[in-house]
């Protein structure tokens, strides 16, 4: 019985405490971003799509070996001056898990991850990317970096 009255009196006080918390938040400005018009700047280390500097690549295939999902494939041929030359470098984006192991393992930093994150597409073929094509990401939105 005593407990009943105690709760009857102190209960509302604790309810009001909660109301005060929500009211304080009601009058503080909203913190969300209006996404398509406002975009968050990407961080320096952000791991977006895999990108390649073909000149730097020494065809060591370390990235292909380390990839846990086998999303990279490269072939090379013998060039005119008997040097190894990149023939193809395929990147299957749909398999990629953006773990960044390939970029970390690359000895010459030829492979890196750019900041592109809006990667939805309605065509599955677009997800298989030829990394040797310099304009491969021209149609994708390029975000700003913090």
């Amino acid at each position: 019985m005593k407990n009943y009255f105690k709760r009857l009196i102190f209960g509302p006080i604790d309810l009001i405490k909660g109301l005060i918390v929500t009211f304080r938040n009601l009058i503080t400005p909203a913190i969300t971003l209006q996404y398509p018009t406002q975009k968050q700047a990407m961080t320096q280390r952000y791991r977006g799509l895999i990108d390649l500097y073909p000149v730097k690549c020494i065809m060591c295939s370390q990235c292909v070996k380390i990839c846990p999902t086998n999303c990279l494939a490269l072939t090379h041929k013998e060039g005119p001056d008997k040097k190894k030359e990149l023939e193809s470098f395929k990147y299957k984006m749909e398999l990629c898990c953006f773990c960044g192991l390939c970029a970390q393992v690359c000895p010459t930093a030829a492979l890196y991850m750019n900041k592109i994150y809006e990667i939805a597409t309605s065509n599955r073929k677009e997800l298989e990317i030829n990394l040797l094509n310099p304009d491969k990401y021209a149609e994708w939105a390029h975000p700003t970096v913090r």
Partner: peptide, 13 residues
């Protein structure tokens, strides 16, 4: 709007 601002969102904009 009220719910959004209580939750520090904007709501319909």
């Amino acid at each position: 709007k009220v719910s959004a601002h209580i939750q520090t969102r904007f709501g319909p904009m």
